[in-house]
Nucleic acid binder design. Sequence first.
DNA 1: AATGAATGAGCCTTCATTCAT
DNA 2: GATGAATGAAGGCTCATTCAT
Lengths: 211, 211, 211, 211
Amino acid sequence: MTSKAANIAALHPARRAGSDKQNEKKRELALHTLSALAEVGFARINLRDIAARSGVSLGTIHYYFDDKTELLSYCVRLYKDDFIGRLAERIESASTLDDLLEQFSDALVRAVDEDAHTHRLWYDIRAQALFDEAFRPVVNDLEEQLTAIVGRFVEKVEALGGGGIFSPADPLSVYLMLDGWFRYCLQQRVAGDKRALTEWKRRLASLIRPH
Amino acid sequence: MTSKAANIAALHPARRAGSDKQNEKKRELALHTLSALAEVGFARINLRDIAARSGVSLGTIHYYFDDKTELLSYCVRLYKDDFIGRLAERIESASTLDDLLEQFSDALVRAVDEDAHTHRLWYDIRAQALFDEAFRPVVNDLEEQLTAIVGRFVEKVEALGGGGIFSPADPLSVYLMLDGWFRYCLQQRVAGDKRALTEWKRRLASLIRPH
Amino acid sequence: MTSKAANIAALHPARRAGSDKQNEKKRELALHTLSALAEVGFARINLRDIAARSGVSLGTIHYYFDDKTELLSYCVRLYKDDFIGRLAERIESASTLDDLLEQFSDALVRAVDEDAHTHRLWYDIRAQALFDEAFRPVVNDLEEQLTAIVGRFVEKVEALGGGGIFSPADPLSVYLMLDGWFRYCLQQRVAGDKRALTEWKRRLASLIRPH
Amino acid sequence: MTSKAANIAALHPARRAGSDKQNEKKRELALHTLSALAEVGFARINLRDIAARSGVSLGTIHYYFDDKTELLSYCVRLYKDDFIGRLAERIESASTLDDLLEQFSDALVRAVDEDAHTHRLWYDIRAQALFDEAFRPVVNDLEEQLTAIVGRFVEKVEALGGGGIFSPADPLSVYLMLDGWFRYCLQQRVAGDKRALTEWKRRLASLIRPH
DNA sequence: AATGAATGAGCCTTCATTCAT
DNA sequence: GATGAATGAAGGCTCATTCAT
């Protein structure tokens, strides 16, 4: 951290990482933002709506977040962290191959089915990152975490005697494939078609445990 | 067609499907738009810039396209059609397994390497379609075509005695996997990192022709 | 007519008053314009729509009319002349007081009831004339004609032995009163309420023939 | 009211009915708008000019008024309310027939003579209302008020022993007649001709106090 | 810590008009 | 006589951001 940055942080308490109260407020604002975001997407979100939903004034948003990009990145990290965290829990808690498979598969399918609107954000911000550098750190970071968690899953599958086409040596490919299906099912789901989702669920089983 | 109806159509030529001259102009405008789009993406494109780049006035854009969405959809279809067309040619022209593999793989890798900026659009519009219905038809249509062309590739691989993990019975999975890698490499490429691309090229070979 | 104006007229045949073919075309265009106008009003009319409805190109409109104002004034004159003409016919053809009253009253009431949309134009252009000089000649001219026709009606009422509160010596007041009611009924009619119209019809009778 | 709802209202103060400061500002903006409107009329007014005249930015206009229509309706109501209010005062304050007549007549004549430009708005918006629903509530409301005030005048005339052709039982007809003359005089006045106005003044007297 | 007020650049879209053919 | 193409000024509206309090 440069000395200038340090000074700015010192002057502007909301910037200080350690203040729990500020962070709590940031979290709260971000949660309201996520609910707005899930409805209209990045392209149409505006700070005034967010402020109204959060029950604060427009100025307050800028008091806690430097600009729109910072708020948005914060939001995506928040929800994706949460998603990854819950995925990890499920994986670790499973003790049989069947259970592991069920937990993992169920988590993905339910995410598409029930939280489709929120998960759209991931694909939205990932597309933005192709154009806007500011979004790249979040995307790269989260994508690494996703690859890691998928890797952990494949490892455990093998450890529990499972197999299939997934190679523990190549978690990236596994992640990319899963993410591809996830997004495809999401797309169909948003348009009102659940068949792809059903099909994917079937395949998830057969891929891991080829008959 | 009554003479009145004919005149109405004539009044706004962009609406008439058959006129070569107008279509030529639409194409030309779309090509300029694509170049702008490749630089800044959907989120930041604006019609004034497009008009300036195309060397026409703002009004002219609206003379040929009803609104921004229509122009943008037209553009994506144009470039993706072109990409698919060239991919199809390469696949059909190959007569040996090695050649087929080389052609296909080369087309994908070069697209990422050389036309990264343009190909970002595909992921951008696909994300938009998750929020905006207007973009869904184009996305669904193109995605079907992409799945079909991938299916054709896999078929031909098998016909020429190849194999690997790709199943001709499931072109969708193959497409999703390829698209996943494509996007991932694109992302790294745009950020200045070509390693993922090199790695993918290696894998493309080994996946089709397992050691 | 100045010599310059004469020359312009000579050079531009559509300007020549005597050309029947041109006038026929102007009339035709104006009739289409009136139908468009009746639907959307002056404030929202645009030449492209008019051209489309008329089955001609945009350029053609400007070939026959110098600018939008000229076209619009021409239209109002056309339809109001027609209205006044038919009113005059009815008045002249009546031979008894009852008939005269019935004819006159019926003409007004039906105009409001059946041609409300077209008659709105009159009040629209009259309001415009308060701001835009270009419209004043048409409005003044038509208003004089309307006063005259109303005067003729009142005269004939008296000649046939009628009376009431209307004084033949003051056609302007009579016209203003009738026009006031006409407009008021039109307003209610357009909003879907016919009660004012019914009431007016009743009063028209009683005013002329007080019990 | 929950604190959230309170905050939403607070966010956009223009929406809150009770805030004096905001209402003061709205009034101020509306007054500037009226002066612009009086010059050019509805058809040619634009928000940028209004902002410039008001000495505020374009954004500020939209901060206080949702859209152009809301601003315009607000303006018409403001000025017409004012006109009606002053008319009512004059009527109520008069204690003799002569005074009543003088007050009323003078108010109308001076309005035409001195505030012609502003009063044009009434006829303009009334014409707009024939085409655009959004303006109907204001127009109907004001017209009811005008009829009521005219009714009050006629009542008082009778109470003070006056008479003439005006019937207290039919305030609508009286209003329509007065409004008809008002508009006619306005029209002539705007075109530079005051004769109609003089004539009207003369008649106002004789109508109420027939020779 | 929070907010209300104000900003102004920027965007999409409309439309009368011009002109070469 | 008629048209298709192109224009460009103008307009309404949105929105992130700033700042005094």
